[in-house]
């Protein structure tokens, strides 16, 4: 456990370290309750080349809690968003830290972060199944959520021809 950084300090730390590889960084604050205490969220877009290094630097700050990796199919690219939280354990100073990367659809590959954060295994396996992203170096790449005989090359969260539309079924239909 190291020092408690403010969101501005965290963004500055990464910008100093990675310069132009940090494509976009914004801080969002929202107040809640009567006392209008604020919570902070950082949205940061990084180049996929430096992604693993960014995670390494994040680990130096404080061991982050990886909540989930979510993904968007943005037609040309696939966007992965890693939702971390840092500064937990301190009253009202936790920061939600979202790091996003763009992967080209022709070659959607990214390194695993399981060697730094072993708890990422389940969510990384899920991304392989549902978005067709190849996680390089994942310790276990078996299917987790879908049935073993679920067709290959169908990724339920894709919006293109590899989406699940072929399998779609309306339960209201009577097939008698």
């Amino acid at each position: 456990m190291t020092k408690n950084l403010t969101p501005e300090e965290i963004v500055k730390y990464f910008k100093d370290e990675f310069k132009t590889e940090i494509k976009d960084a914004k801080i969002k604050r929202r107040a809640a309750g009567s006392k209008k205490n604020e919570k902070a969220t950082i949205w940061m877009k990084v180049d996929k080349i430096v992604f693993k290094k960014v995670i390494k630097h994040l680990l130096d700050l404080q061991f982050p809690h990886l909540s989930i990796i979510s993904g968007n199919d943005l037609n040309e690219t696939i966007e992965l968003i890693y939702h971390f939280t840092v500064n937990y354990g301190n009253r009202l100073s936790e920061i939600t830290f979202n790091i996003s990367i763009d992967l080209p659809k022709s070659k959607p590959e990214i390194e695993t972060i399981c060697d730094y954060i072993p708890g990422a295994l389940i969510t990384e396996r899920e991304k392989q199944e549902f978005l067709g992203v190849k996680i390089k170096g994942i310790p276990d790449d078996k299917r987790l959520f879908l049935r073993d005989d679920f067709p290959e090359g169908v990724y339920p969260w894709r919006r293109d021809e590899t989406g699940p539309e072929k399998l779609y079924r309306n339960l209201h239909e009577v097939n008698k």
């Binding site: 879908l146 339920p156 699940p164 539309e165 399998l167 779609y168 079924r169 309306n170 339960l171 209201h172």
Partner: peptide, 13 residues
């Protein structure tokens, strides 16, 4: 009837 899950790719009900 399926209710809120009335359409899906992973349901056979």
């Amino acid at each position: 009837t399926g209710d809120v899950f009335y359409e899906s790719y992973n349901l056979v009900g």
